[in-house]
Computed example of a mutant assay.
Amino acid sequence: MNAAVKGKYEYDSDKMATSAISTIAIPAGDLKLKASMSDATFTKSPSFSGLSLSLEKPGSFIFHYDVPNQDFRFQFMNSIRVLEKQLNLTYIHNRADNRTVLDGTLVLDSCNKVSANHMMGSDNGKFKYTYVHQGHTTFEPSYDLSKNSWDFALSRRVYGDLLKASYQTSNHKLGLEWSKNSKRIGCLKISALFNLAEEVKMPKLMAETTWNIDL
Results as ranks from 00 to 15, higher is better:
5 V>R: 00
10 E>Y: 07
10 E>I: 06
12 D>G: 02
12 D>Y: 01
16 M>L: 08
20 A>R: 05
21 I>R: 11
21 I>S: 05
22 S>E: 02
23 T>D: 02
24 I>Q: 04
26 I>C: 02
27 P>N: 00
29 G>M: 01
30 D>F: 01
31 L>D: 09
32 K>M: 14
34 K>N: 09
35 A>I: 15
35 A>T: 15
37 M>L: 15
39 D>M: 00
41 T>G: 04
43 T>L: 04
53 L>F: 13
54 S>F: 01
58 P>R: 02
59 G>S: 00
61 F>K: 01
66 D>R: 12
70 Q>T: 11
73 R>Y: 12
73 R>A: 12
77 M>C: 00
81 R>W: 05
84 E>A: 06
84 E>R: 11
85 K>Q: 10
89 L>V: 13
93 H>Y: 15
95 R>L: 12
95 R>W: 08
98 N>A: 14
99 R>I: 14
101 V>P: 00
101 V>A: 02
104 G>C: 12
105 T>I: 10
106 L>Q: 03
110 S>V: 09
112 N>L: 12
116 A>N: 08
119 M>A: 13
121 G>S: 09
123 D>P: 05
123 D>Q: 12
124 N>E: 14
128 K>C: 09
131 Y>A: 03
133 H>G: 02
135 G>Q: 04
141 P>T: 05
143 Y>T: 10
144 D>H: 11
148 N>H: 13
150 W>C: 05
150 W>P: 05
153 A>F: 05
153 A>R: 13
154 L>E: 05
154 L>Y: 13
154 L>Q: 04
158 V>Q: 01
158 V>T: 04
159 Y>T: 06
159 Y>H: 10
161 D>I: 06
165 A>T: 15
166 S>W: 04
167 Y>E: 07
168 Q>R: 13
172 H>M: 10
173 K>G: 01
178 W>T: 06
178 W>A: 03
181 N>I: 01
185 I>R: 06
186 G>I: 07
187 C>E: 14
190 I>P: 00
192 A>N: 03
193 L>M: 10
195 N>T: 15
196 L>R: 14
200 V>A: 06
200 V>Q: 07
207 A>S: 08
207 A>K: 02
209 T>P: 00
210 T>N: 01
211 W>H: 13
212 N>E: 11
